[in-house]
């Protein structure tokens, strides 16, 4: 009962937020609606029992990807009037892509309904461990059978990091002005830093 109510609440909010993402005139509002729809999708994922995916949606999509979208929107100086002018021109293309996606959905659901596709057959090494949560199941599989793919994912992340730095980082002329060298500070002794002088009357101090 509560599950059904929660499902309909999340589903309705997800569709509403998704529609507003497309319809809102300001791209910043679009990103904020996208964040709302991510949260609702996370709720739906919890309802179907995919807790790990729900956690990923909140942590990675809401926490990082949406923020990145926001940065991109704020970084590009978008002329809203110009952005809206191309809507009618691109409308047929958008409809065509939407139709292709719809056809794929219908084909996929039809094939699954006819029994052609077999999703997640629980045999062999991929069978879920009973009495364990699905995060533990993912972990047990990912860090044993798919160990090399996991390391490859690590290498891809490394390449992504290096690539992002190479593409966007520019060395600035003033970059090395304020560097603190702690070793140099610690090596400095009082006798290097202070001098005792006894200047004669009427003469200044020469340093």
């Amino acid at each position: 009962m509560i599950q059904a109510i929660a499902f309909y609440m999340f589903a309705v909010l997800l569709i509403a937020a998704g529609t507003l993402t497309i319809m809102s005139r300001n791209p910043v509002h679009s990103v904020l609606w996208l964040i709302v729809s991510f949260f609702n999708a996370a709720g739906l994922m919890v309802l179907v029992g995919a807790e790990f995916i729900a956690m990923l949606l909140v942590i990675v999509y809401v926490g990082a990807v949406a923020v990145l979208f926001l940065f991109v929107v704020m970084m590009l100086n978008i002329d809203f009037a110009e952005l809206r002018a191309g809507f009618m021109k691109n409308f047929p293309l958008g409809i065509a892509i939407a139709l292709v996606l719809l056809a794929e959905l219908i084909l996929g659901i039809g094939a699954y309904g006819a029994g052609v596709l077999e999703l997640g057959t629980p045999d062999g090494s991929a069978a879920p461990l009973l009495g364990r949560s699905n995060i533990e199941n993912i972990g047990a599989l990912l860090y044993s059978d798919y160990l090399f793919l996991f390391e490859a994912a690590g290498l891809i992340l490394l390449v992504a990091m290096v690539g992002a730095i190479v593409l966007t980082h520019r060395e600035r002329a003033t970059a090395h002005r304020g560097h603190q060298d702690i070793g140099k500070q610690n090596r400095r002794r009082p006798e290097d830093a202070t001098v005792n002088t006894r200047p004669e009357v009427g003469k200044g101090v020469q340093l």
């Binding site: 990675v60 990082a64 923020v67 990145l68 940065f71 970084m75 992504a160 990091m161 992002a164």
Partner: peptide
């Protein structure tokens, strides 16, 4: 800001 956000995504993953 973009570079900081990308590095954040990577460490987040």
């Amino acid at each position: 800001f973009y570079l900081v956000a990308i590095l954040f995504i990577i460490f987040d993953l």
